[in-house]
Amino acid sequence: MSDEPLVLGIETSCDETGVGLVRGHTLLADAVASSVDEHARFGGVVPEVASRAHLEAMVPTIERACETAGVSLGDVDAIAVTSGPGLVGALLVGVAAAKALSVGLDKPLYGVNHLASHVAVDQLEHGPLPEPCLAMLVSGGHSSLLLVEDVTTGVEPLGSTIDDAAGEAFDKVARLLGLPFPGGPHIDRAARSGSSVAIDFPRGLTSRRDLERHRFDFSFSGLKTAVARWVEARESSGEPVPVGDVAASFQEAVCDVLVRKALDACVDRGVEDLLIGGGVAANSRLRSLAEERAAKHGIRVRVPRPGLCTDNGAMVAALGAEMVVRGREPSTLDIPADSSLPVTEVLL
């Protein structure tokens, strides 16, 4: 056990300051400080607010992670950090902190891809990753289908959203319905009192013509507009908006398309394991629909628990530990924070 690497991971790509500690595949600590409450009144993440919060939270969050894990910083074998993609000013705080730890502790630095970390985190809960596997990452910033041959070197993007991210659609629809930001958990809750077949909202990029060019891509902008039109029509006719039905039917439209395309990709690539990550993976309907339909295709579904699906430092540490175990070359101290880092670049 003790010859497994102790890795500290730092995540600051959006509004969560995450510091995680893992030893091999074992999660020791996952400290997260979120600035989400500061963004709520703006209806979305304000980059400057997030960056300021990261600076204030960084040292206390590192200390909290060490305390929880019962280790001292001197015990750490390597530092991993999200180098991108994400908000550049936010990323930079984490990257600079990671470099300072690398210099101060004289330990190797691994600048890694945020999306690949969302895949690697599952190891902390379900053991070694099945490789190859199909990963579907759905959050407020991303909606991607990835073929993962080797999470440290080979991630192939099969498709992604061509407009809004899935989580963004949840936020926007929540706002239409007068529900707070972030919208995901509120829509999920409201949907329980409504019918998912009450309203037939459109499924983006599923027509035969769209499938020719965008088989594994997503589009949620049209869906959001359709929901807005429906709600406005109700309001102008003076009838009450059935929040539960709208939430459930909207949620069904999103989950239907996500699961349909993810399973199509699994079948197309002959992959038997589907891994779902990102904040939207915490959605209860997405989990149940994926499991229900995947079983029919003999495909196994792995979804980390909600706390590991949203942004956190443990996922970065998990990928960092994998880099160490698989003997990947550490990053140099001059690596940038890259807001649009492609998923094909897992390690900088």
Partner: peptide, 12 residues
């Protein structure tokens, strides 16, 4: 912020 987070984290 790069300078300050570097200084604070190095100090830690």
């Amino acid at each position: 912020r790069v300078g300050l987070v570097t200084a604070r984290t190095l100090g830690l």
